[in-house]
Design a protein around this nucleic acid. Structure first.
Lengths: 232, 232
DNA sequence: TCAAAAGTGTTCGCGGTACACCCATGA
DNA sequence: TCATGGGTGTACCGCGAACACTTTTGA
């Protein structure tokens, strides 16, 4: 441990974006030892006048345009005393999400990497990345977090492809539309998209009604009793 | 900030236990400034050779018998630069749960406080406590976390009272039993409890099948498609 | 007129709630 | 035999999955 029990504190970000048919994570390649050449999550030291969320946003701004990051939330603390070489560092990890239509300019040392083919990662950053993916998958099912992955306007098929990529399994456009409209998450814009070269009915365009995280599937289990006479 | 960007890191615990008809939280009264007389969460400095979870367990052991704490999980990081007086401290908060039948001996400065009537709390410990209660309420609905609140053996009515106290609303014993047995969480022991002085049918006794956290309500929404031909 | 893609209608079944009813005991 | 509390049986309903069918386009 450092003098007088103090430790270095980092804020790290698992920034995810759907590319092609899989999520990708934003990594930068370390130029210097330790672990030169390995790929690391963006982030860095906690500053004197900021909390960890402000810190992760500040460090992220060095790698991507922050306006492109549609959602940020705390993941967990990683504090194994041997998670990296001395001196010790404790990290608060965050999940960040970037919409598919955003393709921000990146510094030369930084790139998106498909999560199904990660390069050699630095320290415990591979484990932290998996925690971010798990969080995203869980929240897709019971929140409106898709707003942070999708472009402003989209067709249901496009959204289905996003969900399928993030979840890692096929998703039915039919049911996705019904579920999300029933929950009041999806709002039709009135516009339609032109069909592709092989024809087909033009698709209606939608957008997410809210662009802030909301739990849309309050757990039915053990909810307070309803007013008398209201069965079911 | 401290020399060279280092900060003190604390591990704090929101230890909850159901007492009477409400949850109570374990607090100790500060003897020294700052905030002498105010009530604080147990916890303290991160040690050199431990991660934050080991640290919170170590500090907790100074206040209660650790064997009585049935479950511990990470809550969140609290890092506002002005959450306490200088020098700055960052805290990783944990949720801890103690069964109702355990009533561990406590040091003189330490006591259980009903969460609906908290005393003056130190720093941001009131806010952290609320985060712990919220986490417990959420997890009661979709996990088997009740194992950490209930005694080893209990009747459904006793369990109903526990759930009602933790959730803050009435709970139906009928439905609680059905839900938890259907999920395979509750196991009958075969024993029965003697009725009270006013009579009534003897109640069957149950226990939690597992004493480790398990998600029992996998979100039905957007799960992977089943094998073909299996409808519904 | 045909293929392709979007979208709707319908059925099914699970699971949680509500509520009526039955069971076992003490006074 | 009655009050009291425990336990079961049953109906209802929301909701997500599956799948057949209709709609609208390009070739």
């Amino acid at each position: 441990m450092e003098p007088e029990g103090l430790v270095a504190h980092d804020a790290l970000a698992v920034v995810l974006r759907i590319t092609g048919a899989v999520p990708s994570v934003l990594l930068w390649q370390r130029a210097r030892e330790p672990q030169a050449g390995r790929w690391a999550l963006p982030g860095g030291r906690l500053g004197a006048e900021e909390d960890v969320e402000a810190s992760v946003r500040r460090h992220l701004a060095e790698k991507v345009d922050l306006a492109e990051v549609a959602h940020v939330e705390q993941l967990a603390v990683f504090s194994d005393p041997h998670r990296g070489p001395a001196p010790r560092r404790v990290a608060t990890a965050f999940l960040g999400l970037v919409p598919t239509d955003a393709d921000p300019a990146l510094p030369g040392d930084t790139a998106w990497h498909r999560v199904d083919a990660l390069p050699d990662t630095a320290f415990d950053h591979g484990e932290i990345t998996r925690a971010g993916i798990d969080r995203l998958r869980a929240k897709l099912s019971y929140t409106n977090i898709g707003f942070a992955l999708a472009p402003d306007e989209f067709t249901v098929s496009e959204l289905r492809d996003l969900y399928a990529a993030a979840l890692g399994h096929r998703v039915s456009a039919t049911n996705l539309q019904r579920v999300l409209t029933r929950r009041g998450v999806l709002v039709p814009t009135g516009a339609t998209a032109a069909p592709g070269p092989s024809g087909g009915r033009p698709a209606a365009r939608f957008r997410f009604g809210e662009h802030v995280l909301r739990v849309t599937d309050p757990f039915a289990a053990l909810r307070p009793p309803g007013p008398p006479g209201v069965t079911g």
